[in-house]
Design a protein around this nucleic acid. Structure first.
Length: 840
RNA sequence: GGCCGGGUGGCGAAAUGGUAUACGCAUCGCACUCAAAAUGCGACGUUCUUACGGACAUGAGAGUUCGAAUCUCUCCCCGGCUACCA
């Protein structure tokens, strides 16, 4: 009887599906467990990264079921997005057709891998029954001011013909097509994520220890909170005031010039009427149109131009020339920076290039003394001194440490009305407008009489028309489709036009986990009781590439839905993902698998060759889940060999061993030494796999320990199968192997369970429970060291007292030899483990 | 430049203060076979030694400790994220 994975895998997949094993609902007295993987984009093919991700999740889902949990393990499709439009243009299909046909293909592939999803909850975000609720959320957001429209310079990808969120610009390039992103002035829809910056930051503390540290850090850095001051500088010969943001108000006495971003609102007024106005305006245009590229602080030449105007340093009274500088960002702070060349790297560079005055106002702490004369002369400075230190040349503030000085300066600013303490964040509002077709329509219309009006709730969903053709140039067909945009004003009934921008697909993925709790509800987005029952997601699993994009948006969305009354605040936690596991990549030949490099491995081909169980097992055995691992043909061969080894063992023992439960044999059967050893190993492996999976997600070591058990069974089977008690222990151990491996390789385990004559499906079983007494030993081995080096081993009865053990250790032959003529100074005994003899 | 990981056999990796290299891969040997494959069993860090046995090994160097891959410090290398954020 040869192992035939294909036959048995199809058989058991059908069995589980027909008997509805993995369907769940909230009417259960078991504790709930929500296990979720980041849902796939339906590109058409499952890749190894998916297989790894879903195998990890599936082990946890099965494991928790076997621990007695009511497990929700859903799957769906992140179905809107650009690739569908590109493919539609290339292949002459419609994005919807392409998407749904891919979903069908990928569904088949996932089913073939035997993942234990509740398929009755499957959803696709391009379904109007899904996005209609999102449109409802947006109408509410609009009402609450969380959704708004503004005109601003935006990241524009010329290749994708759409704007991009800041999170979607990577080193100045489009995250999708890697085109250079331009800055374009447009009116766009934004979600006010910045209102939640503090909560998003503070709640990261709740995730400490549950989420990977680096993801938490990345989110903290992205939100980028910095505490400092706003300082107002009066413009000379003008009415205006320039406000700057700084975290280094202690260096204010060193501010010798002012630098403004090219997009600064006061700039227009400042340059008009100046001598070289034309030149200035052309310089401003140049900077505004400059590519938003990756800057390197070390080697990027800064550019600037003097406006001819001055402002006044409120502390020194000095005149500060106002410059336009390309390194000042318009979107951060106030778009104006006070130039302190002595204590800021960029200001120093800028001052050197344009010969601006340098004034030293901080000296290193350790030089001692309180005199201003201790400060280095500006001409001696080869670089900016950017650390904290002692304030010098700073009037009444001289002698203060930077930290103290910052507080005192703020007090002074507030007292004199020159500024205030303030907090700044890097995070900006989330631009959700996309000038693309294949996305959810934004439910807003523009009426000549009423202006911008939200669509009525009863008119939802605003359906994306499916009878339009995508344009080869990539532009959205919606603005040219009167059937879509012409509509009646929801307020006055007059003629109106719909918004033709669609939503960023990250909006859909920001709440799909909530919809899974009640995916067929046609009256509301989700029933509050069902939501409250299942949320939060107990374990979320996915790639680290979503550390800031999706994982930040989803956190924000849950909080926003809470504040709009969709999520019951008291019953659903503010954080949607209680625990996060970020799995590593699957590499081939040390590099990321990619079509362009031609180093992909197709999961379907591997399943054809070895079967789903082997593919799953290898993905989990090759490395711990967080680490990258290299796909090797010999590695998967090894996994296949192990599965065959279990198959042969079970087939050989079928009929020769009794049908018993896992971990069912007692000490009365363990009379032979080999039987005792096997029983002990069996229980030890149950213990270890439980800890490895639940506590540390170490699937590789869990599998390794089951391999050890199988190896031991091979060693002792011929002896034990001849013996009554031995038979029972062999049977118990074999069912333990099958039960423990069921979450990893469910098909073969279920098949062998049946062939061994055991009627209850593994899918209905609990994990075996080990007994402490089975783990105990009569005689234990104690390692003996002399001066920390292994010199011998002694066998002693368990529980022997320290004095006896030490004496036995000192008497051991190898130990005596190494002590030789040396005096024994000390003997350390670690109970049950080792003795270290210190001699010298 | 900043932050976060990581560096252990020929390879993927175990070991989180107590026997370094579990488990698997590769390689070699033995059995089975006419033979090969498959399978089963065994060997497998480096080095010295006929052997018994010893010495040396977790990126480098120091420290703490009876004892360090593990903790501390300094340095080197690799990877990731982020970046003119005031």
């Amino acid at each position: 009887m040869k192992y035939n994975p294909h036959e048995i895998e199809v058989k058991w997949q059908k069995f589980w599906e027909e008997n509805n094993y993995f369907h769940c609902d909230e009417k259960s007295d078991k504790p709930k467990y929500y296990c979720l993987e980041m849902f796939p984009y339906p590109s058409g093919k499952i890749h190894m990264g998916h297989v790894r991700n879903y195998s990890i999740a599936d082990v946890l889902a099965h494991f928790k079921r076997m621990q007695g949990y009511n497990v929700l393990h859903p799957i769906g499709w992140d179905a809107f997005g650009l690739p569908a439009e590109n493919a539609a243009v290339q292949n002459g299909t419609h994005p919807a057709e392409w998407t749904y046909s891919n979903i069908a293909d990928m569904r088949r592939q996932l089913k073939r891998l035997g993942f234990s999803y509740d398929w009755q909850r499957e959803l696709a975000t391009c379904d109007p029954e899904y996005y209609r609720w999102e449109q409802l959320f947006l109408i509410k957001f609009l009402e609450k001011g969380l959704l708004y429209r503004k005109n601003a310079f935006q990241n524009w990808c010329p290749n994708c013909h759409t704007v991009l969120a800041n999170e979607q610009v990577e080193e100045g390039l489009c995250w999708r097509c890697e085109s250079v992103v331009e800055q374009k002035e447009l009116t766009q829809w934004f979600l006010r994520i910045t209102d939640y910056a503090d909560e998003l930051l503070e709640d990261l503390d709740k995730l400490e220890g549950k989420w990977p540290e680096r993801v938490i850090t990345m989110q903290r850095n992205w939100i980028g909170k910095s505490v400092g001051a706003e300082i107002r500088f009066a413009i000379k010969d003008g009415a205006g005031v320039i406000t700057v943001f700084t975290t280094r108000q202690d260096t204010i006495f060193g501010a010798t010039f002012m630098s403004l971003a090219a997009a600064h609102p006061l700039l227009d007024e400042l340059v008009s009427g100046t001598e070289n106005e034309a030149e200035l305006r052309s310089f401003i245009t140049t900077i505004l149109n400059a590519e938003k590229r990756a800057y390197n602080a070390e080697n990027t030449e800064k550019r600037g131009m003097f406006t001819g105007r001055y402002c006044i340093n409120p502390f020194t009274g000095a005149l500060m020339p106002i410059w336009i500088a390309d390194f000042v960002l318009s979107g951060y702070g106030t778009g104006a920076v006070m130039g302190v060349p002595a204590h800021d790297r960029r200001d120093f560079e800028f001052a050197q290039k344009y010969s601006l005055p340098i004034r030293v106002v901080i000296r290193p702490d350790e030089t001692g003394g309180t005199d201003d004369a201790e400060a280095p002369a500006p001409e001696d400075l080869s670089a900016a001194y950017t650390d904290a230190g002692i304030m010098v040349n700073s009037g009444d503030f001289s002698g203060l440490h930077s930290e103290e000085g910052k507080l005192r300066i703020v007090e002074y600013l507030e007292k004199e009305g020159l500024g205030k303490r303030t907090v700044n964040r890097r995070l900006r509002d989330w631009n959700v407008s996309r000038q693309r077709y294949w996305g959810a329509p934004i439910p807003v219309v523009y009426c000549e009489h009423c202006g911008m009006v939200p669509e009525k709730e009863e008119n939802l969903p605003v359906r994306l028309p499916l009878d339009v053709l995508t344009r080869p140039d990539g532009r959205s067909p919606l603005p040219d489709d009167p059937g879509f945009y012409r509509c009646a004003c929801p307020r006055c009934g007059g003629e109106a036009g719909r918004e033709t921008d669609t939503l960023d697909t990250f909006v859909e993925s920001s709440w799909y986990f909530a919809r899974y709790t009640d995916p067929r509800n046609s009256a509301e987005a989700f029933d509050k009781d069902k939501l409250a029952y299942w949320m939060p997601v107990d374990q979320y699993i996915g790639g680290v590439e979503h550390a800031i994009l999706h994982l930040l948006y989803a956190r924000f969305f849950v909080k926003a839905l809470r504040d709009c009354g969709f999520i019951p605040e008291t019953r659903v936690p503010d954080e949607p993902f209680a625990d996060l596991l970020t799995q590593g990549m699957v590499l081939k030949d040390g590099r990321k698998m990619s079509k362009s490099k031609g180093n992909t491995v197709d999961p379907s081909e591997m399943t054809d060759k070895y079967g789903a169980d082997t593919v799953r097992l290898f993905c989990l055995f090759a490395a711990p889940p967080e680490r990258d691992f290299d796909w090797t043909e010999s590695g998967i061969e090894g996994a296949f060999r192990f599965i065959n080894r279990i198959w042969r063992l079970a087939i050989e023992l079928a009929g020769k061993i009794p049908v018993v439960d896992a971990c069912s044999s007692g000490p009365e059967e363990a009379l032979l030494p080999a039987a005792r050893a096997l029983r002990r190993k069996e229980h030890a492996v149950v213990k270890k796999t439980g800890e490895d999976i639940a506590v540390r997600f170490q699937f590789n070591t869990a599998i390794a320990s089951v391999m050890e058990l199988v190896n031991l069974m091979y060693q002792v089977k011929d002896e034990l199968v001849e013996n009554g008690g031995g038979k029972k222990i062999l049977g118990s151990a074999l069912f333990t192997v099958l039960t423990l491996l069921f979450p990893f390789t469910p098909h073969i385990c279920e098949e062998l369970r049946l062939r061994l004559g055991s009627p209850l499906p593994l899918a209905e079983r609990r994990r075996p429970v080990y007994s402490e007494s089975a783990l105990s030993l009569d005689m234990i081995t104690i390692v003996v060291q002399v001066n920390g080096k292994l010199r011998g081993k002694i066998e002693i009865p368990a529980g022997e007292d320290a004095g006896t053990v030490k004496a036995a250790a000192l008497a051991e032959a190898g130990v005596r030899k190494h002590i030789g003529g040396l005096a024994v100074k000390k003997v350390v005994y670690v109970p049950g483990k080792l003795v270290n003899v210190v001699a010298g």
